[in-house]
Write a protein that binds this DNA or RNA. Sequence first.
DNA 1: CAAATTTTTGACCGATTGGACAAACGTTAG
DNA 2: CTAACGTTTGTCCAATCGGTCAAAAATTTG
Lengths: 211, 211
Amino acid sequence: MNTGTEAPRRTRIQQEKREVILEAALEVFSTNGFRGSTIDQIAEAAGMSKPNLLYYFRRKEDIHETLMQRLLDTWLAPLRELDDIGDPMTELRSYIRRKLEMARDFPRESRLFANEILQGAPRIMPLLAGELKTLVDEKASVIKGWMRAGKIAKTDPWHLIFSIWATTQHYADFDVQVRAVLGPNRGGDGRFEDAARFLEQLFLEGLKPKG
Amino acid sequence: MNTGTEAPRRTRIQQEKREVILEAALEVFSTNGFRGSTIDQIAEAAGMSKPNLLYYFRRKEDIHETLMQRLLDTWLAPLRELDDIGDPMTELRSYIRRKLEMARDFPRESRLFANEILQGAPRIMPLLAGELKTLVDEKASVIKGWMRAGKIAKTDPWHLIFSIWATTQHYADFDVQVRAVLGPNRGGDGRFEDAARFLEQLFLEGLKPKG
DNA sequence: CAAATTTTTGACCGATTGGACAAACGTTAG
DNA sequence: CTAACGTTTGTCCAATCGGTCAAAAATTTG
């Protein structure tokens, strides 16, 4: 019985070459978008001919789809780790830090995702309304519990999650703007530590002047 | 003397048709990106033939460039209004509200800008490092003054501005994701008011539990 | 080794793209 | 009316696109 969804058998070469292609495609897609990228560009970045690439992925969309599937798992991992049991402030601080680290270490993945959402998420809409919504709703309940217990200020958990996403991913998606505005002095490698300090203060203390 | 930068004389029809084209192009570019959009799409959305459109804008890039130039002025207007004289908390609250209103009322402009930045800002890089950086640096000084005066908590003014940009524009750029996660009940028209309430609390009070 | 299988590529195809062009059409001033 | 000027479009073109195919090259299998 073949359900059509099981992983096909692959040779060693197939496994390796598919990885090379996916790495190249991530680079190309994340900087040019799906329609802005050509199979030739990806093939060249992967160091092979276009027909050879199409031997491993039959269509351009297949590459993009595989990339998006892998992305979502790792992308949502930090939120999955948000733990009901832990100390709320510590958990939130860890979540913010992890998300910011992902923006720093995987900016291409972030931009790939942003590109997809920006254009209406035509290829992953079901995932957003399904898996993603379920996860966010679940974690929103956890946060709501913390609020009821008086551990953190009462506010909207969904918009809290949105704002953590927005602020952290900003440093990946809008990186060129951030660097341009900060200039050569402050726009160097230290910008992520500055951002981490700022976001920690923003989310955990706000802008109210201290006593 | 023709400096080459002065506005060319245009007939009434030219002025009108150029507006129609720019409106159509905004719609198309903001949902498909520059390379993902075709002149045919824009021409159809503008209700004219492709050669006719090319009579008003000689190249696809010219349309995009005109759009970006107009965009930047209106886009930075809220930040320009941030006033040294006013009450800091009131000024920041107003700035956040105005930016969120722009995300609500001009989502296409926001997405057009996001698309440009995501792809490395190839067409507006000089503006970012020039005009934009100057404005942000100037307003950062204003905010720094408030901090020195003890009016608001001491933190990094640049990253504060980044986080206001990120959180507000998120509701335009990632709108489909926001609506998908909030679901049909909470994802309706009220989501911007919810966001406004949340952001106001976040930036002005943080998450620290209230005594 | 030799046969079978997998991998690679050059050549090619139809569709779409941005843009050119000349001819037709409309409008206005004298 | 008519000449001049502004506007519109059908047709065409070269380049690029995603994808096919058959045949060659490399690898694995027996």
